[in-house]
């Protein structure tokens, strides 16, 4: 069992194998989720679980996996560019209601940082962990930027951002079913401020306006926080 051929595969083939496996697991879990929409069957939970099983069976290190399939992560960049289309389509609504959205973003950012930092301190986590958790609700590039400026460890923050996305998409759906939210703006802002890109993907499944608002709010919250980071650093350090 110790000499599985996978680790000795040509790097290009190795990359092809794990990229194809990732896409296949994703597509399969998406199809299953469409049929049985249980929260634990969401593609963000089921696809990684299937890949972990595959990696264990093939005795692969996660690092080797990540080396081969990590390029998919870079596609979040062009996905952000794609936000322009729904934002453009909903421009009349956004122009009309921007003060409401701005209020939601400011409140959401403050609650995100205060509760992350406060809860981490209350649970006795170390100072560096507290600071690394503080910007976790923004999308990765922004969160890492802010984390570095306020004295956290950007790489740790990136992990917390992913965890926020995975759980946030589920929590958001759960809250949506229990809160009586009248406006699509509120439903979109909930996902965009609370769970960045993963939440925005969910918001797009819920509705066009929700998706557009979530994408816009996610980007603006990131920008807002990067601009505010120097002041924040002064306060936190």
């Amino acid at each position: 069992m110790s000499d599985w051929p996978l680790s000795r595969l040509d790097p290009a083939l190795h990359m092809l194998f794990w990229s194809a496996a990732t896409v296949a697991c994703y597509l399969l879990s998406k199809r299953i989720y469409r049929k049985w929409p249980k929260w634990w069957l969401t593609p963000l939970a089921a696809a990684p679980a299937a890949l972990i099983v595959a990696a264990l069976v093939l005795k692969e290190d996660y690092r080797d996996y990540f080396h081969s399939a990590g390029w998919l992560l870079a596609l979040l960049g062009p996905a952000t560019v794609a936000f322009a289309v729904p934002i453009y389509e909903q421009r009349a609504l956004i122009r009309r209601h921007w003060p409401v959205l701005l209020a939601g973003m400011v409140v959401g950012s403050l609650v995100a940082m205060a509760t992350s930092w406060g809860l981490a301190a209350a649970l006795g986590l170390s100072g560096v962990l507290q600071l690394s958790l503080t910007p976790r609700s923004m999308s990765t590039p922004f969160a890492m930027q802010v984390s570095g400026e306020i004295g956290g460890i950007p790489d740790l923050t990136a992990i917390f951002v992913v965890m926020t996305g995975v759980f946030g998409a589920v929590i958001g759906e759960f809250l949506l079913a229990r809160m009586n939210l009248r406006s699509a703006l509120a439903r979109g802002a909930l996902f965009g401020v609370g769970a960045h890109g993963a939440g925005t993907a969910k918001a797009h499944q819920i509705g066009q306006v929700e998706g557009a608002v979530s994408g816009l709010v996610m980007v603006l919250v990131g920008l807002l926080n990067v601009l505010a980071a120097p002041a924040l650093a002064h306060f936190l350090r």
């Binding site: 209020a103 649970l123 909930l190 609370g194």
Partner: peptide, 29 residues
């Protein structure tokens, strides 16, 4: 587990507060 607790609780708070703020101001306006 502690980190997970921070992330879960904080995410619930952020989402609820953001959505309530937007919804209340929206209805009011």
């Amino acid at each position: 587990l502690k980190i997970l607790a921070v992330i879960l609780l904080s995410t619930v708070a952020v989402m609820a507060m953001t959505a309530l703020t937007v919804d209340l101001i929206f209805r009011w306006s």
